[in-house]
Amino acid sequence: MKRARIPVRLIGTIVGAMATFVAIMSAIGTQASCASSYDPNKTTAIVAPDYEIYKNYLDDFLDRRCGTLDCHGAPGRAYRMFGSKGLRLPTGTLFDVALVSGVQPTTEAEKRANYEGIIALEPEEMSRVIARNGENPLTLEFLRKPLGTETGQPAPGTRAIGERHKGGQVLDESDPGYRCIVAWLQYPVKLLPLDGAIPRDTGTPDTGAAPVDAGVTGDGSVSLGSPDLDKYCTQLPAYR
């Protein structure tokens, strides 16, 4: 009986591939073993957007638009919202009945948690966006997702700039809510720590622009500090 012969070239190729695999795995192992150990004092510096504008204008809008219990008002979401009509901030009581969904108004602590939740999605990218005064905000997934459709494909007659979003498209570029978010990201901020939650690194780069405080303008109207903030964010309380 004639025995089939395996070509020497094939054996060489297999041995070569195995050697490459072993080399890569060993390199990965070496890297891992050389990784620095956990440092509990190490912090990540961030440049955060303005909290007051978020609290007074955006939180309620985002809660209505995104924070239902079956969407981002669910505990397991990466972007997770707390609010009066959706998920409530845990209070540590039995069954968490101190704050009940649909009963008490949204608390300051819940708004703060929502604000920090947005930043915590992509803290480094948020810092970059704020540091460049909000230019090109679509590098943030927080903005790309609500512009995207459920399939990731653009709706007929529209262009696709968003990212696939299981809840479908909930914002578009002409939406006052979207314009308010963009104006909020463009608003120059003071570099402050997040109430100690994420300690500030003194080496944090400045945004380069002086913070603009809200105040009374020449015609007597109250300005939030930028025309877009005045134009879009002030519409939001009556807007769904």
Partner: peptide, 25 residues
């Protein structure tokens, strides 16, 4: 309903008892 239903087809997946932080009851 004070809000809207985003995408959950079963009422009681959000509206279960007792009313608490994760459910209006």
């Amino acid at each position: 309903m004070s809000g809207h239903i985003g995408r959950e087809p079963s009422c009681s997946n959000c509206h279960d008892n007792p009313a608490r932080a994760v459910s209006p009851g």
